[in-house]
Simulated scan of single mutants.
Amino acid sequence: MQFNFYLSKYMTVNENGIAIINGNQKRNPQLDDVITIMGESSALAQNLKQVITSPMRFFQTDQKMYIKIEGKNCLGILKIGRKNLFHRDLNGIIKEIQPLCVLDFYVHESVQRKGIGKDLFEEMLRIEILKPEKLAYDRPSPKLLGFLKKYYNLQTYIPQNNNYVIYSQYFDYKQTNVQQEQITQQIHQQQQNPQLVNQQTQQQRVQPQQTPLKMEQLDQMMQQMSLESKQQYLQYQKSKAQAPWATDQKQYQNMYQTTTGLMSAQIHKR
């Protein structure tokens, strides 16, 4: 879709030609035009009853949009957001989950089958640090289902009343899934409140500095204890090597005087 202005003037584009727009950022008329026209084209291509992507439905939300641009042309959009969903398995057990969802995915007809959709999707997976099976898909079109089957071998899922598609692999490797969600939440927190993350980082930098001081004090105490123990041991070895009476000079003198007195008394008797 061609516009009468260069899109890079009104949005930041990375080295892959993709702009990442957050729903809480500042709006501008040019960006509104891009989102409006691409949203309407997406709804028409998917035979939707209503437009699901518009400035009013996107801004002031926690959603995110990946936009592939080239000069004055917008080649495609990919909108994502986190949703609370209830999923029913084959046993009828319902689980409440909060996955990151693909809410809209559209590539303009003039550039389809040229890898534009793959570029958008791979960029989103890289930035969000997720695998395609860990996403939920809102009313995916037959083209999107075929895309996921072709490139990522995703095809097994249980139809839901809410029309979200969640592949069976989503519930595999629960520990890995939890770790990925934690990383994603940390990145989301950093984007929403960078000052709080900086304060936490500074606190983490301060705390380790206190540990070496405590270790140094403990080391000094151990050295002092070792020195005192060594001195006590040397005194013990020294006293052990001498005769018992040699350790007390007064006791030695008393023994000498007593012995001399006894000898003198015997001489006088004779």
Rank of each mutant, 00 (worst) to 15 (best):
Y106I: 01
L78C: 05
I183W: 03
L90H: 11
Y170E: 09
P99M: 08
L7T: 09
Q50V: 08
Q155V: 07
F147P: 01
I97H: 09
E216K: 08
C101V: 02
K83Y: 12
D62F: 09
N4G: 04
E96L: 08
G39F: 07
I94C: 08
M221W: 00
K269H: 12
K49G: 15
I129H: 12
Q30W: 04
Q200T: 01
L90R: 15
L44V: 05
P29F: 00
L196W: 08
Q195W: 06
N14S: 08
L103W: 07
L145K: 13
D248V: 04
Y137E: 00
L75N: 15
D172S: 12
Q237C: 15
P159A: 12
Q50A: 14
S141K: 10
N162Q: 06
K83E: 13
Q30F: 08
L218F: 05
L100G: 09
L90P: 05
L130I: 05
R139K: 15
E40L: 13
F147Y: 12
Y256Q: 10
N153L: 09
N73L: 02
I116N: 13
L75I: 00
Q191V: 07
Q63E: 10
Y233D: 13
I187A: 02
F105A: 09
L234V: 14
G146M: 06
I77N: 11
P140F: 07
D104P: 04
L85V: 11
K214F: 02
N161P: 00
P99I: 05
Q199W: 09
I187W: 03
N198C: 07
Y151T: 01
Q189R: 12
K143D: 13
T156N: 13
K72S: 02
W245C: 06
I35R: 04
Q189K: 11
D32V: 02
N198A: 11
Q160C: 05
Q190M: 09
N4L: 06
Q195H: 11
Q235P: 02
Q242L: 14
E181M: 02
K26A: 13
L90E: 15
K79Q: 14
D104Q: 13
V206L: 12
Q179M: 02
G17D: 09
F105S: 05
D62E: 13
E181I: 03
K68M: 04
E40T: 11
K230H: 12
N161W: 03
L234W: 08
Y106G: 02
Q209I: 00
S110I: 03
I97D: 07
P140D: 08
I116L: 02
F5C: 00
Y151A: 00
